[in-house]
């Protein structure tokens, strides 16, 4: 079946089997491989993308459900330009909020959604927000620090993540 997806501000028409997940469509059809496959049953959060700004599991959503539907944002949509980092991405580097980097795109997408709606999250807010994204490397400590740092930098810019990337 044909699906019209709007991803990172661009329109794509793809031809997929009805059973194709949004995750597989993003990776296989659109070659957006920054969204990662972890468990394929909605637990780990590695495949998190934004649908109209809300974090969703792209492994639990069919491509067909995004047909002519929500605006999808993947990790590739957060970078401002090749070699440049968004404020959140830069904060993850500064705090070393990652190791192997596999859960990282999902974490950053989730952090982005949090900071879009809450400019002054406390530690509990951050812990809650990322609690559905599993990381096996870091023990979450430096991820929390990275998000705290990103929030601070965004406040200094007086901008939300989406405003700061424009």
């Amino acid at each position: 079946m044909k699906c019209q997806l709007r991803v990172n501000g661009e329109d794509h028409t793809i031809d997929v089997e009805p059973r194709t997940t949004l995750l597989d469509a993003l990776r296989d059809n659109l070659k957006l491989t920054g969204t990662h496959v972890g468990c394929e049953h909605g637990i780990c959060g590695a495949c998190t993308v934004l649908a109209d700004g809300e974090p969703v599991r792209s492994c639990l959503m069919l491509a067909a459900q995004a047909d002519a539907g929500p605006e999808i944002t993947t990790i590739e949509g957060l970078s401002t330009a090749p070699g440049e980092l968004s404020i959140i991405q830069d904060a993850f580097c500064e705090a070393h909020g990652l190791q192997c980097g596999y859960c990282t795109p999902g974490m950053i997408i989730t952090a982005s959604a949090l900071l879009e709606r809450n400019a002054t999250p406390n530690r509990d807010d951050i812990v809650d927000a990322i609690s559905a994204n599993l990381c096996r490397c870091t023990g979450y400590g430096q991820i929390v620090e990275a998000i705290e740092l990103a929030a601070e930098k965004l406040r200094q810019r007086n901008a939300s993540p989406s405003e700061a990337s424009q």
Binding site: G34, I75, H96, G101, T104, P105
Partner: peptide
């Protein structure tokens, strides 16, 4: 100091085996 590796991962530009087809 910052690590050299992190930049590619935070942008989704890691080079994982499933990315190679």
């Amino acid at each position: 100091r910052r690590t050299q590796e992190d930049r590619r991962f935070v942008t989704g530009k890691g080079h994982f085996v499933a990315d190679i087809v």
